[in-house]
Design a protein around this nucleic acid. Structure first.
Lengths: 245, 245
DNA sequence: ATTGAACAACACGTAACGTGCTGATTTATA
DNA sequence: TATAAATCAGCACGTTACGTGTTGTTCAAT
C-alpha cells in the first residue's frame, strides 16, 4: 500500500495528476485511512502504469477510460485509429514544413515580407499538390508533371537552395541592366547552370517549363521564378542571338 | 466597411472567433455604428488575413500579436523557430508511430495484450535508439549495430511484416512439438528464410545476432524473438544435426 | 503532547474558441 | 411608419489535463 506521495515519487507522476485521475474516476485508490488519506494497492499501480502507457500512445484520458474498461476486442481498432491520426498529423506537419521553408526562402530572396507570396504559398500547400499543377497541364505532359512533383524544396540540398536563392536574388537586383552586357550574360549563365542541374539533361522538360512560365501570369508554383525574372532572362537570350549575327 | 457578419461570411471565420480576436485586442474594428455595432475596414481585413496566415503556420495568437506589432527583423527568427518546433514534433510522431506499430504487431502475434511487452516497447522508443542497442555491444561491432538500426519496422514492407508475424506466431503455437519432427523442421525453415531475407547474405551478422539473442535474457529490441522461440529453433538445429549422423 | 511533513479538498488559471443566452440594434417588410 | 425578422454586443459557462496556491486536517516522529 502506497500513500499518494510515495506513489508520486516512484512513478514520477505529480500528486496533482493522481489527484485529478482520482477526481475523474480514472484511478481510484482501493482503500483509505481512517482520516481519509488515499492508499494505493499494487493493482492500482498497475492500472496507473497502463494509463501512462496509453497516454504515451496519444490517447485522451476519456479514451483511456473506455479502453481499460472494455474488453480486449477493441484494442486493435483503437491502435489502428491512433495510427491513422498520427499519420494524418505527420502529413499536416510535412505540408506545414514545406510552407514554412518556402516562406523562409521568399523572405531571403525578397529581403522583406511579401504577404501576397505568403498567401500564395499557403494556398499552394492547402490544396493538394496534384491540383496545384493543373494550371500547367497545357504545357506539361503527365510524366513531366510527376517529375516536377517529386522535385520540391524538401528534396533539394541545402546548398542547392542557397545557390538558387543567390542566383535569383542577383537577377532581381539587376533587372534594369543592359541585356547585352557582360554582367547580364553571366547572370543568365549561372541561372542556366542551376536549371540544368535541377532538371538534369531533360532538355524537353526544361523547354516545356520555359513555355509554361512565359505564358502563365502568376506562376507561384515555381516561385521565385516570377515574370520579371523570366522576362529578363528572355531579353538576355535575345540579346545574345543578336550579338551572334 | 463590413459588419462582423459579412466579414465572417467572406473569410469563413466564425463570428465568435472575430469576437474573441476583438476581446484579446488582436483585431479591433477601426470604427463602430452609433449603436455600437462593429465595422471592419479593408485594413482590418488585411490584418485578419495575416493573422490567419500566421495561424496556419502554427503560431499562437500571443506570438502573432508580437510578430505583427514588431518590425520585420524578427521574422526569419520566428520562422526558423517554428521550423524547429515542427521538426521536433515530426520526430516525436515518428517515434510514436514506431511504438504503435510495434504494439499492434505484438497483439497480432500474442493474440492478447501483453502489458510487459507494451511497456518494453515504449521504454525502447523513449530512450534513443543508440542506447537501446548498447546491450548488444558485446556481441555486435559498430558496423553491425548501424546495420540493425537501419532495419526497423518502418523500413520493412507490409508483406514482410505479415510473414514475420505468421512465422513467429506459428512457432509460438508449436513450442512443444518434437524438434525432430517434419513440422518442426518446416517451421525453422521458414524462419531461416525470413532471417536470410532480412539480413541479406551477411552470414556473420546473422551469426552474431544469434549469439546475442541466446545470451541476453530479455531481448526486447528484437521482439518478438523471445527466449522460447530461440530455444525452440536451437533445439531443432540440434535435432537436425543428430539426424545427419 | 507537540511539531513538522504530508495530505484532502477546493479555487482559479491555462488556449482558443463553441454554444447558448438576453437584450439592444439594424434591416426588411407591410 | 410601425412592426417583424435578422443581426448584433456582451456575457457566462464549457472544453483538456493538469499547475499553482491556499486552508484546514491527518499522519509520523519525537
Amino acid at each position: 500500500m502506497y500513500t499518494i506521495g510515495e506513489l508520486s515519487k516512484n512513478t514520477e507522476v505529480t500528486v496533482r495528476t493522481l489527484d485529478y485521475y482520482d477526481e475523474i474516476g480514472l484511478i481510484k485508490p482501493s482503500s483509505k485511512t481512517e482520516g481519509g488519506h488515499r492508499l494505493y494497492s499494487e493493482d492500482d499501480v498497475m492500472r496507473l502504469e497502463r494509463v501512462l502507457a496509453l497516454k504515451y500512445m496519444g490517447f485522451s484520458l476519456e479514451q483511456i477510460k473506455d479502453i481499460l474498461e472494455n474488453s480486449t476486442s477493441t484494442w486493435q481498432d483503437s491502435i489502428q485509429q491512433q495510427l491513422e491520426l498520427v499519420k494524418r498529423e505527420q502529413e499536416r506537419l510535412q505540408v506545414l514544413e514545406q510552407a514554412l521553408l518556402g516562406i523562409s526562402y521568399s523572405i531571403e530572396i525578397e529581403g522583406e515580407i511579401n504577404w501576397k507570396i505568403i498567401f500564395s504559398i499557403i494556398q499552394l500547400y492547402q490544396q493538394d499538390p496534384e491540383d496545384a499543377l493543373q494550371q500547367y497541364k497545357d504545357y506539361l505532359n503527365d510524366g513531366e508533371m510527376k517529375k516536377i512533383m517529386d522535385m520540391n524544396v524538401k528534396n533539394m540540398s541545402e546548398e542547392d537552395i542557397r545557390k538558387w536563392i543567390k542566383v535569383i536574388h542577383d537577377i532581381k537586383n539587376n533587372l534594369n541592366i543592359d541585356p547585352a552586357s557582360e554582367k547580364a550574360q553571366q547572370l543568365v549563365e549561372s541561372w542556366l547552370n542551376q536549371a540544368e542541374k535541377m532538371y538534369g539533361n531533360d532538355e524537353k522538360l526544361l523547354g516545356d517549363m520555359w513555355q509554361a512560365l512565359q505564358n502563365l501570369k502568376e506562376g507561384i508554383a515555381f516561385y521565385p521564378m516570377n515574370k520579371d525574372v523570366i522576362q529578363f532572362i528572355e531579353s538576355v537570350f535575345i540579346a545574345k542571338e543578336e550579338l551572334k549575327k
